[in-house]
Design a protein around this nucleic acid. Sequence first.
DNA 1: TCTTTGTTGATAATCATTTTCCACAAAGAT
DNA 2: ATCTTTGTGGAAAATGATTATCAACAAAGA
Lengths: 160, 160
Amino acid sequence: MNAVVRRLREQGYRLTPQRMAVLQAVLKGPGHLSAEDIYQQVADAFPMMSLATVYKTLEVLRDLGEVVELSVEGQARYDGNPRPHVHLICEKCRAVMDWSAEVDFPVAEAAIVASGFRPSYYRLEVYGLCPRCQASDDGKAPVPPQVGLKNGEGRVEEAK
Amino acid sequence: MNAVVRRLREQGYRLTPQRMAVLQAVLKGPGHLSAEDIYQQVADAFPMMSLATVYKTLEVLRDLGEVVELSVEGQARYDGNPRPHVHLICEKCRAVMDWSAEVDFPVAEAAIVASGFRPSYYRLEVYGLCPRCQASDDGKAPVPPQVGLKNGEGRVEEAK
DNA sequence: TCTTTGTTGATAATCATTTTCCACAAAGAT
DNA sequence: ATCTTTGTGGAAAATGATTATCAACAAAGA
Ligand SMILES: [Mn+2]
Ligand SMILES: [Mn+2]
Ligand SMILES: [Zn+2]
Ligand SMILES: [Zn+2]
């Protein structure tokens, strides 16, 4: 947190209460929030905060590499942990969870480089159902949102 | 192609010229096209084609599992190859390329299942610079972090 | 305190995607 | 072939997330 603040100043960015608030919401709040989520969180302490400012601040943090922007159902989510890690994404409630086990890069990086492509990072997301949504047998239970899930790539053997 | 047509009828969908055109553009075209791209492609043969119809048709094909929808820079791209494969995505020109090498499920599935999550499929995308964009060295090249993953214990960290 | 600029916030503008509504056409039946 | 039913296409409007504007403001430095 202090380290992020330091880097902000080093890069010439000003330290404003709004930026501190967004930063805190992203780093200390429940992770993987949307811009709107962050706006709501911050609105408590800063009722005058504008949603546009939230977006602008997140853009700054993203360009600095302090937060990672991911996309869930076409909506941006922000991760305060910029280190590469796997995400488990629930197709029903859209919750995003970290899978913090060490994962070997699944593709031979050398082979990709040899092909002429220059990789910089990768993104690995596992889609499925979170425990809570499995329990609720048909949508009767309190499972917040739901929309038709998008199809993806790479089918995995169905767990039985 | 014929197989897809067969499955369309089996599911009770009608076989219309518009659907054939979209299907052909997705299956035989350059791949990973946006809805707008497909619309332009199809517009040659069907000047009366509506963009809304392209979207509707792509939704049908997606729900049937015949095409895969991926998101690049917040924009939907459609892949006529529903088989699991890795994508190489250029951060500069946004080209999407297939990495045809076989890839094992990159995370210990048993461990994920043991954690309570029920996986159904995964998505693996490698970001970087395509050969063509490396050649034209005009733009910015922030050279982000390395590709390797290193994390702690194999545990799911759910966002509260 | 003065100056310089980066930043904010309210609002309008974008832009991809979805929804509406209805004429129309594809199948199936008569 | 004609009738019926019902899915489908087209045009336009609606949506919803994100971005652009721009005048007023405030953070840093002098
Ligand atoms: Mn995360
Ligand atoms: Mn592909
Ligand atoms: Zn869930
Ligand atoms: Zn490129």
